[in-house]
Amino acid sequence: MDNLYDYLHEKFKALGGTQIGSGLSAEFILLAFFPLVLIALLRGVNDTIAIVLALLFIVAVVFSAPFVVKVSKENTDHYNIAAFYVAIVMGIVMFIMLGGI
């Protein structure tokens, strides 16, 4: 645990000049955000699905934290990022509206 700071410093280098403190706070909020969204979506649906997804979430945390780097990479001002998400969300919105879910 001694070199946790160095580890994070290495990871957050990709963010370009962001302080480690801000990166860590954002990371913790994201870690709280995903399970809360899972609970909100799955509460009352099915216990088994909820448990499986919770386990998957823990695996995801172990293997892919810190999320902050990935989130910030997906939210740049690049045109293609915007186009990708717009296309995906347009599809999902139409799917849900027409009663797909």
């Binding site: 990479k73 740049t76 001002d77 690049h78 045109y79 293609n80 990022i81």
Partner: peptide
Amino acid sequence: SVHEIFKEEKI
């Protein structure tokens, strides 16, 4: 080209 113009905003 979009790749050229948006080069500064890294993907």
